[in-house]
């Protein structure tokens, strides 16, 4: 359970488990509580952070308590929806270095880590640019790199494909599919969910209303319409290849 300081309650009891290496999509209409939920996963919101609410989170055997906050935040990497929220340092290099520097990395070790993360998203040639000189798709990729630089075990993405042009959307999918991490991804882009994630959670009204194979959820027309979800025109979830192939 969790309520924001202005009195709005966003979560009303949520319970689920994600296995190591699994890729899971988190679906649901606007205002379902998806973003609020993922902000709990590394203790940014909720009682650990001194907020209003109750509940329990466990990551890789470590319970989320105040004394483990640093470790949890290293293990769970969060990519925010708006890359401008994530890229707050003067240059791309400063930004990607922010997390590892906080973990205590210095000098050449730090430089290597930054370079490695930028190569993973194909942005190594833009390290010295200011964020406002990048395109939106480039900023989204750098945002992913800022988190990858911390070598997280779980990567949590909020709407990774939003506002991207088709080519940038596909490039990001290629990058995400190539990563060896547990992935939890909030998205309204249902084909994207089907392409990348075998399993999906469906949230509405601050509760989880469905949990199963992405393909089955998308093919359940009643479930979909009851939760304000719609497939793109002429898209048949039963006839396209998914991650299981």
């Amino acid at each position: 359970m969790f309520a924001y300081p202005d009195g709005r309650q966003a979560l009303f009891g949520v319970d689920f488990t994600v296995e190591r290496g699994e890729r899971v999509a988190l679906l649901g209409p606007n205002g379902a509580g998806k973003t609020t939920l993922v902000l709990h996963l590394n203790g940014i919101l909720g009682s650990v952070a001194g907020g209003t609410g109750s509940g329990r989170v466990q990551i890789g055997g470590t319970g989320l308590h105040r004394e483990h906050l640093g470790e949890i935040r290293r293990k769970v990497g969060l990519v925010f929806q708006d890359p401008d929220d994530q890229l707050f340092m003067p240059t791309v290099r400063d930004d990607v270095a922010f997390g590892p520097a906080n973990l205590g990395l210095r000098a050449s070790e730090l430089d290597d880590r930054v370079h490695e993360a930028l190569v993973q998203v194909g942005m190594q040639d833009h390290a010295d640019l200011a964020p406002h000189h990048l395109s939106f798709g480039q900023r989204r990729r750098v945002a992913v790199a800022t988190v990858l630089a911390m070598r997280p075990e779980v990567l949590v993405l909020d709407e990774p494909s939003s506002n991207l042009d088709p080519a940038a959307r596909r490039e990001l999918a290629d990058i995400l599919a190539g990563l060896d991490v547990t992935l939890l991804m909030i998205t309204h882009d249902l084909p994207y969910a089907l392409q990348l994630c075998e399993r999906s959670l469906l949230m509405n009204g601050g509760r989880i209303v469905a949990d199963g194979k992405t393909r089955d959820l998308l093919a359940d027309a009643d479930l979909m319409s009851a939760n304000r979800l719609e497939l793109p025109y002429a898209f048949n979830p039963l006839s396209v290849p998914g991650p299981e192939h």
């Binding site: 902000l39 590394n42 940014i44 919101l45 640093g70 935040r73 290293r74 769970v76 990497g77 969060l78 925010f80 929220d85 994530q86 707050f88 922010f98 997390g99 906080n102 973990l103 800022t146 988190v147 911390m150």
Partner: peptide
């Protein structure tokens, strides 16, 4: 929040 989630 983004800073905190990167160990600030």
């Amino acid at each position: 929040l983004a800073m905190q989630s990167r160990a600030y």
